[in-house]
C-alpha cells in the first residue's frame, strides 16, 4: 500500500478519505450552506476516483465524465442555493433542523 511509487490504490485511499469527510460534513452539521459545500467535496472526491481510473486504463472517457459532473454540480449549486435564499427569506435562518415543511 505504501510503496515508493504512487499507484491507483493511493488515489483511491485519498478519495475515500475526502468522501468520508464530505459525508461527515453533511450529516454532522446543521448549517445548510456548509452541507452544500460538503456535497461539493464529495463530488470532487468522486472526480478524483474517476480520473485515477482513467489514468490507470489510459482512456479519456473519464475526463469527459468529470466535465459533465462539473456542469451538473454547477446546476445543482445554482438551484440549491436559490432555494436556500428563498428559505432564508421566509424563515430567517439556514439551520436545516428548522425547515420542517415545504409550504406555509
Amino acid at each position: 500500500m505504501f510503496d515508493a511509487s504512487v499507484g491507483l490504490n493511493h488515489y483511491l485511499l485519498l478519495s475515500v478519505l475526502l468522501f468520508v469527510i464530505g459525508v461527515a460534513g453533511v450529516i454532522f452539521r446543521r448549517n445548510a450552506i456548509i452541507m452544500f459545500m460538503s456535497i461539493e467535496l464529495m463530488l470532487t472526491s468522486v472526480n478524483l476516483t474517476i480520473l485515477a481510473y482513467s489514468r490507470y486504463l489510459g482512456d479519456h472517457t473519464g475526463h469527459v465524465l468529470v466535465l459533465f459532473v462539473f456542469a451538473v454540480a454547477a446546476a445543482e449549486a445554482a438551484v440549491g442555493l436559490a432555494i436556500l435564499v428563498e428559505l432564508f427569506r421566509k424563515r430567517d435562518t439556514v439551520d436545516v433542523d428548522r425547515f420542517r415543511q415545504l409550504m406555509e
Partner: peptide
C-alpha cells in the same frame, strides 16, 4: 465560479450565529 457563488450567497444571507454547530 462555484465557490464564488457560494461565497456570494453566504455573504448575502449573513447572520451565521443563529445556526447551532452540530447535532
Amino acid at each position: 465560479a462555484i465557490m464564488v457563488f457560494f461565497l456570494f450567497v453566504t455573504m448575502f444571507l449573513g447572520e451565521p450565529r443563529r445556526v447551532r454547530l452540530n447535532r
